[in-house]
Structure formats: structure tokens, C-alpha cells
Amino acid sequence: MAKADLTVNIGGLELKNPVMTASGTFGYGHEFDDFIDVNALGGIVVKGTTLEHREGNNYPRMAETPAGMLNSVGLQNRGAAYFAEHIYPKIRHYATRIFVNVSGSRIEDYVKVAEMMNDLEDIPGIELNISCPNVKEGGMAFGTSCPSAREVTKAVREVYHKHLMVKLSPNVTSIVEIAKAVEGEGADSLSLINTLLGIAINAETRRPVLSTITGGLSGPAIKPIALRMVWQVSKGVKIPIIGMGGIMNATDAIEFFLAGATAVQVGTANFIDPAVTVKILDGIAEYLNRHNIHSVRDLTGAMECC
């Protein structure tokens, strides 16, 4: 049979396939050059980028948990200007869609970073991070109420002319309401979910494992929640959804498509198997062939509920 069609379109932007990498789990791509051909991926979302340099949170920043892990990195990065000047020139050659995850603690900072990203020719879109749980003064605060999610999306939309993906927090009462608010302000796509807020405690020392006490939970432990949220949001908005949360293999990715995602982001799995993304890609093609499905696009929202 004909080769499966893996191309997808997220709000006017075509990806050669639906497998992307999640911000903060894939560095800037080149960290994986020894393991895979990064060009094979549909897209990569680089590390959360803020206006100013950030040192991030103190060590320890990681705790292994059942079927997952907590992190509290705290958006360690060299700042947007450093990215544009020193990192972007080294990664712009990749034949994949490169998205910059834009983070901040003030609306004007998000706006400034978004403006800077406009000028980078080989960055076709940004992922607006209104959902980082590890930064005290902001981040997630924007993504947990409809008015603030609306306000930051609107402000960035006014200045940013390319693809605007907004990354949603699961740490909310109704993710659908936030999704609708963000869609209403002109987001081109939504990515979900960011990590779930959690705590790990060392019973012997009676101390929290993380320096910040709380951190963001990722890995297979959160997959059922992520699937539920992708499914709910897909019923409430018209723009494409990029699903993520505990994807470890092709079957997991396909479940996200069936729940309503157009593309997926692979995150924590990259730490355990740095070649997992290309394996997922191969597995999706194999699934399509085995089920005689012409295009991966036919899977989006194709869960059959009786």
C-alpha cells in the first residue's frame, strides 16, 4: 500500500509529521544529535526562554516518582537576546519546525520576547508558556485564570505575526474555559498539558526532596489526565491541539490523536530513551499501514464512543 501520509497542519502551519518534542526536555535539539537525526522530527520546542537570563532554582530539582518524575528547574536559560545571538545560529539549519517556548513573569516581558522572535526567520512559531509551575512570580499565574490568560495572549498576539501556540496548565478548575479564552484572543493552536503540581517527601529525613518543595509532575503517571483534558478541550475549541503528557511510545501518541490532538509533543521519555521520538514516528507509520489508514490526520478525534 502507499506510504502513510504523516503530514499535519496546525492552524496554517504544516509539519512533516506530528511528532514534536516538549520544551525543557530536548534542550535546543543539538543535545540529541548523537542519538537521532533531529531533522526527522515534525517540530522541536526549545527550552523556555525569558527576557532576562535566569539561573533557575536551587538543586535538588528532580525527584523520581511512580511512573514519572517531578522537576523544579525554574526556567534556567540565558535569556532571549543570548538565544537569538548565540543559540539560534547553531540550530536554524535543522530541517524541522523550531518553536521557541516563551516564558515570563510580566506581560511586557512576554511581549518583548515575542517581538524579538518575530525577527528570527527560521522560527515559524512560539509556544506561549502560561503554565510553568516552577516560577514563583508568574508563569502559571497567567494560565490559571481566564482574564489573565486572555490578557497575555491578546498582548502577545498584537505584536507577534507568526504561529502562536499557547501551552495550557492542568492546574486549573476548568481547562476548557481557559482554552476558549485563549482561542478567543487569536491563538493559532493549543499545547497541553504542562506538568501537574506535586510534592515528593523523604520520610526518613522528613524533608521535601525538591529545594522548592513543589514541582511539576510528568511521565506516564499523568497520561490519563492529559488524555482527558485533550478530549475535553477538543470538544470546546476549533483550533488544533498539540497533546502531551506521559507519551512513551507510538501507542500513547495514537491515543492522543484519538482523543483530539493533531500533533503530539514527547517530553520526559526523551530522558530515558534519547532516540524515542524517531521510534514513535516509525510506530505511527506502522500503525497507519496496519489499519489501512491513509493519513494520520484521520486519527484526530477518531475515538469511537458508543
Binding site: T25, D34, N58, P60, N71, V73, Q76
Partner: peptide, 21 residues
């Protein structure tokens, strides 16, 4: 230090140096 990936992607294993984390 405890780490998740081992090759510079997760940024979990940082140590404070005179040039930052």
C-alpha cells in the same frame, strides 16, 4: 548529583559554580 537524562537536556543535576549553575 541526581539527574534525569545524563546528557544536558533536563537541567536537573546542576551545581553552583563561579559562573552560575
Amino acid at each position: 548529583n541526581t539527574m534525569a537524562c545524563g546528557f544536558g537536556a533536563c537541567l536537573c543535576c546542576v551545581v553552583k559554580t563561579t559562573e552560575g549553575h
